[in-house]
Every structure is written in structure tokens, then in C-alpha cells.
């Protein structure tokens, strides 16, 4: 890994496979610290696969594997000595579909990660308040923390899931189309949260929504399908440049809505 560059995550020649087929061509990409990096591109170009490779979740699928390296503060998360569980503690994730754990209350959903470590009741209570305040959910649910999490609306559930991943204090947050299942108002609340949280966290967000990428991100990565049918990064850079003066023809076509 180059010593001079300040990236929080440095993706180096990372490939992803499903069985024998290549899903992402070798990708090299710096992810700047405490900035929002948006990954955009047409459906099926490997955005989610790339994102899921960054916390080693991709490899949990049957037959799926990665090659290459991802440097997290100078350590390769794919090093054989590195336990993927430690990686997932430092790199949290929010999914496309809000997925609170069924059978748990609102508070219990926030604390599940801490419970695994045997945290005390007091630590858990503090984490509930802190995380729910971070996700602007505290005032809405503070009087019903012991209600089933499934009683919340979709947007609240998604913010609860964000609170759940924040509770274990990660450094990087991966978001896989976090607002695609939400209504416009809930979407804007998620976007506001992203803009607030970026002062402390490095955020990578996959989105289908070009306006969303434009609104929340500092950097944009445009992915597309390569010649062999595998996903590849066509262009990456500051969002302002990608959106105004794209260097790549395909990027321009996609952003202006001519394909995708």
C-alpha cells in the first residue's frame, strides 16, 4: 500500500467471484477518510458485490470468494491471520431492506452487538441512548424502547438498523441502497444522517439514485459492466467533477440518463 496516500480504505486489485465466474474485475480504489463515497452504476454491475467484499460478507455466500487486498489503515482485511469477525466490527453495514431482528425489542436491536461481547446493562443502556440520538430516532421511540422493533415504520426501522451498527462503534459504514425501500421523506432523513455522520465515520454508499449521490457524496465511483461481463470501475473522483465533467463517455451517458 502506498504510504503517502491518506485513504482510510485502500482497495487494491480486488476481484470478486461467484464460483468460477468473475463478478468484479481487478479494482484499485482509495476511499478517503471521513468522506462519503457513492458507488453508482446500472443494475447488475457489481456495486453491491464490491460493497459486500469490503466487510468480507461476500465470501459468506456459497461459492463466493475474493482475491486481492483491501487495506484498512495499513492492514489487509483479507490477510489469512485476520478474523473476518474483527473486520465486520470495524466496518459496519446497513442493508437495502431494513432488517431489524425479529423477536427483539427496539432497545434489544440496538444492543445485540454489545450483548455478544457480554456488555453490562449500563453499557447497553448508554449505547441505546447514544446510538438512537445519533440516528435521530431517540425522541420518536424513547417512550417505547421495549416495543417490538417490527412495529416501527420502514424509515424508522432503517434508522434503527443504522443505530444497531453504530452501537458497536465501527470506523467505516457501508450502506447498500439504504433508502431504496423508503418513501421520499424517510429517504431525506437518511441522507441528512449520512451528512451528519460523515464527520466521524467513513461512509460508502451504493445508490441507484443519481440525485442522491449528488446530494450526499464527496466522491463518486461509477461502475459499469466490462467486456467480459464482469463489473468494473469506469471512473472515480470527486463528485463535483464526475457530475459536471465526466471523463468517460459511459459515465456521461449514465448520468444524463441515456443508459442504465
Amino acid at each position: 500500500m502506498p504510504e503517502d496516500q491518506p485513504a482510510h480504505l485502500y482497495i487494491e486489485n480486488l476481484c470478486a467471484f461467484y464460483g468460477q465466474s468473475l463478478a468484479i474485475e481487478p479494482t484499485t480504489l482509495p476511499i478517503p477518510r471521513q468522506q462519503v463515497t457513492a458507488i453508482i452504476g446500472p443494475s447488475g454491475c457489481g456495486k453491491s458485490t464490491l460493497l459486500r467484499s469490503l466487510n468480507r460478507l461476500h465470501e459468506t455466500l456459497p461459492g463466493a470468494r475474493n482475491e486481492g487486498a483491501v487495506w484498512l489503515d495499513g492492514e489487509n482485511i483479507f490477510d489469512p491471520d485476520v478474523d473476518p469477525i474483527i473486520v465486520r466490527r470495524r466496518i459496519g453495514m446497513v442493508f437495502q431492506q431494513p432488517n431489524p431482528l425479529r423477536g427483539r425489542t427496539i432497545a434489544q436491536n440496538v444492543t445485540i452487538g454489545l450483548e455478544l461481547d457480554g456488555a453490562s446493562k449500563q453499557e447497553c443502556d448508554e449505547a441505546v441512548e447514544r446510538s438512537l440520538k445519533l440516528t435521530a430516532l431517540w425522541d420518536e421511540v424513547k417512550d417505547r424502547l421495549n416495543d417490538p422493533a417490527m412495529d416501527l415504520s420502514g424509515g424508522q426501522q432503517q434508522r434503527l438498523c443504522l443505530a444497531r451498527s453504530l452501537a458497536v462503534e465501527p470506523e467505516v459504514i457501508l450502506m447498500d441502497e439504504p433508502a431504496s425501500a423508503l418513501d421520499p421523506i424517510a429517504t431525506l432523513r437518511i441522507e441528512d444522517l449520512v451528512k451528519e455522520l460523515v464527520s466521524e465515520y467513513t461512509i460508502i454508499i451504493v445508490t441507484h439514485n443519481m440525485q442522491q449521490a449528488g446530494r450526499v457524496s464527496d466522491n463518486t465511483v461509477f461502475m459499469t459492466l466490462g467486456d467480459q461481463g464482469a463489473g468494473m470501475v469506469a471512473e472515480a473522483g470527486p463528485t463535483s467533477e464526475i457530475f459536471t465533467t465526466p471523463a468517460n463517455r459511459k459515465t456521461e451517458d449514465y448520468i444524463t440518463g441515456r443508459f442504465g
Binding site: N55, L57, T60, I85, I86, V87, R88, R89, G92, M93, F95, Q97, N99, P100, L101, R102, G103, R104, I112, G113, L116, C161, R164, S165, V168
Partner: peptide, 29 residues
Amino acid sequence: VPTHQKEAMLALGATRWEVIRHAQLPYAR
């Protein structure tokens, strides 16, 4: 049990047993 329930636990750094214990068994109870 839906994949999203298992991945909720996995993404939090849960071991295989913890995924079964906290996501799958409660869901399938």
C-alpha cells in the same frame, strides 16, 4: 429464515453460532 436476518447478525461480527442463536432460532421459534 430470510437471508437478511442472518446477514444482520453477520454484519455485526457474529460467529456462526451467534447467528443461529440470535437470528435463526428466534425467527423459527
